[in-house]
Write a protein that binds this DNA or RNA. Structure first.
Lengths: 103, 103
DNA sequence: ACGATAGGCAAGCAACGACTTGCCTATCAA
DNA sequence: TTGATAGGCAAGTCGTTGCTTGCCTATCGT
């Protein structure tokens, strides 16, 4: 019975965009940021001049991939990084006997 | 001094396509396959009915990302999997103190 | 209640990516 | 040498995607 990697689809597509990877970098540094915080820090620290909606759509992609969880609190929405989906996606192609594969 | 992940760009884009991931699956199972072999096995084992050129272009993407190495021998061109670029791309977002991250 | 702040929805656009088609080159076997 | 096999190159199509723009809802402070 072959292994099915169906759930990995969204994760790989989410990771394909450099802006989304920068967002994950931001959340790795500090969890629980709001949309406006992420926008500001992407501008100041990475030089990305993107609209609020662009970031919002990226966050939606990351969330539907399971890489980001969000919790609403009043008018704020805080975003947390979730690395769980990353765990299975690389070991998929690692051969047990090959050298130099020390994750 | 911030870390630069420039070389990861091609790797993530290469992994974003499901067909390319199937190709990596094939090469994980058996190294040194030719283009026609990969075509045949994608059809029979994964039900993918793609043209030879489609697979060829996918292999070019994988090769320029460093995930596949190729060696020419007569009229054959053999393809080998190279997992080295995969080593740094996931640990990027893993926090050392978080639970459940046992790669 | 009112304005300001935080965020969402939807249509439109421009660029990219996957795939096909057609034709060409190179190597091997007879 | 001729035909068959393995692969490469380039243009064209078509769906996807990243981003913008405009407008709307919800919550908070005063």
């Amino acid at each position: 019975m072959p292994i099915v990697w169906g759930m990995a689809e969204d994760v790989f597509k989410a990771l394909a965009d450099p802006t989304r990877r920068h967002i994950l970098d931001e959340l790795t540094e500090r969890d629980g940021q709001t949309l406006f915080e992420i926008c500001a820090r992407l501008v100041t620290k990475h030089g990305l001049a993107l609209s609020r909606q662009a970031i919002s759509q990226h966050l939606a992609v990351l969330e539907s991939a399971g890489l980001v969880h969000s919790r609403r609190q009043g008018r704020y929405k805080f975003h947390d990084l979730n690395t769980e989906p990353l765990e299975c996606i690389v070991t998929r192609w690692l051969r047990p006997d090959a050298p130099g594969e020390h994750l």
